[in-house]
């Protein structure tokens, strides 16, 4: 008597089950039917416990980021594209061109398989657009109620070209601060969706990969000091970090800051300051004054830098502080927030 063998192949279900994280047949089905077709590349297809990369001699940049955004899908992107762009941008801010990504998923039991497919396909498209392969990954499933649909971690490796030395500690007095575009689009898109606010005009996330913009900047000037993407905590937090690490002050001009009307309006309604709202497709470049015009022109020629603007200078006074010149001719501090921005009562 032979053992009973079920003739039907194990199919991926409508929803994520605990078994999809078991390492057994359901896990294999998930890999074969969702992840491998989307991310296909020679390194991943080997299905080893690790990807082995051939790299040329040089300096490697290495970064990791986790994505827990809610809602998962929003105008201008979703958690999948964000997970690719976020890590690519962290590499790019060090002047690195992305080489490979990993992707780890923590799925909640009961998460709709159609949504997972949508997220994974979006990730694959984003990675393809950047030209970076997703070469290794992992999936775990947690019990219903122990997650929030899907969490994604991506880790990235990139190559830093010789001679590139970017650091938040490099800003020097009289350097110029350039911002690549409008503030607050990503954060306001997410917050208005969460609050169910319907606002006039289209606001969408600026989620985008910045590595080609960075390449354009580095091609325009060899002496760029700092690049940072003002994500969580917004421009204010990024500039404060640079001021502290560089032991310098930063003075910006309020009238120079590009902020779209929809974002300004939403910030008024929600009681928020756009300086502290997250961006996912913007960067701040700090360059010596002599290179500022060349860098600005290079940024403006790039589609992701069309609204680039010089927003201020690095100054020798008030080390570690960021100040802002208001349209009224007065000056105030732009502080780091102690925690999340909290809406005011009235």
């Amino acid at each position: 008597m032979t053992a009973f063998v079920c003739p039907a192949p194990i199919a991926v279900q409508d929803t994520v089950l605990l078994g999809h994280g078991s390492g057994g047949k359901l896990s294999a089905a998930l890999l074969q039917q969702i992840f491998l077709p989307a991310f296909h590349n020679p390194l991943l297809s080997r299905l080893e416990d690790q990807a082995v990369l051939d790299v040329e001699r040089g300096r490697l940049a290495f970064t990791t980021d986790s994505f827990v955004v809610k809602p998962l899908f929003f105008p201008g992107g979703d958690i999948g594209s964000l997970a690719v762009h976020g890590t690519v941008n962290d590499l790019a801010m060090g002047g690195a061109q992305p080489l490979a990504l990993s992707a780890a998923f923590i799925l909640e039991e009961g998460f709709p398989m159609a949504d997972l497919r949508r997220v994974v396909d979006s990730m694959a498209r984003a990675a393809e657009n950047v030209g970076v392969p997703i070469v290794t990954g992992d999936t775990k499933v947690v019990e219903r109620g122990c997650g929030d649909g899907v969490f994604i971690n991506t880790t990235g490796l990139g190559m830093v070209a010789a001679g590139v030395d970017l650091s938040a500690a490099n800003a020097r007095a009289d350097d110029v601060v350039i911002l690549s575009g409008s503030l607050g689009d990503h954060g306001i898109t997410i917050l208005t969706r969460r609050q169910g606010l319907e606002l006039e005009g289209v606001i969408e996330s600026d989620s985008a990969p910045l590595h080609t913009l960075v390449a354009a900047i580095l091609a325009a000037a060899g002496d760029v000091r700092v690049m940072r993407d003002p994500t969580r905590g917004g421009l204010a937090s990024t500039l404060n970090e640079i001021a502290v690490q560089s032991h310098a002050g930063i003075a910006i001009r309020e009238t120079a800051l590009p902020i779209h009307d929809g974002v300004r309006g939403a910030c008024e309604v929600l009681g928020l300051d756009p300086l502290y709202v997250a961006n996912e497709g913007k960067l701040v470049a700090i360059v010596p004054a002599a290179s500022a015009e060349a860098v600005l022109a290079a940024m403006r020629r790039h589609p992701l830098g069309a609204e680039a603007a010089i927003i201020g200078e690095v100054v020798a006074r008030h080390s570690g502080l960021v100040t802002m010149h208001t349209p009224f001719g007065t000056t105030r501090i732009v502080d780091m927030l102690p925690g999340d921005q909290l809406p005011r009562i009235c």
Binding site: T326, F328, G329, T330, T331, R332, R344
Partner: peptide, 11 residues
């Protein structure tokens, strides 16, 4: 908050 945010006492 408005007075401080815009630095109005300086005017």
């Amino acid at each position: 908050h408005t007075l401080m945010r815009y630095g109005l006492p300086d005017l």
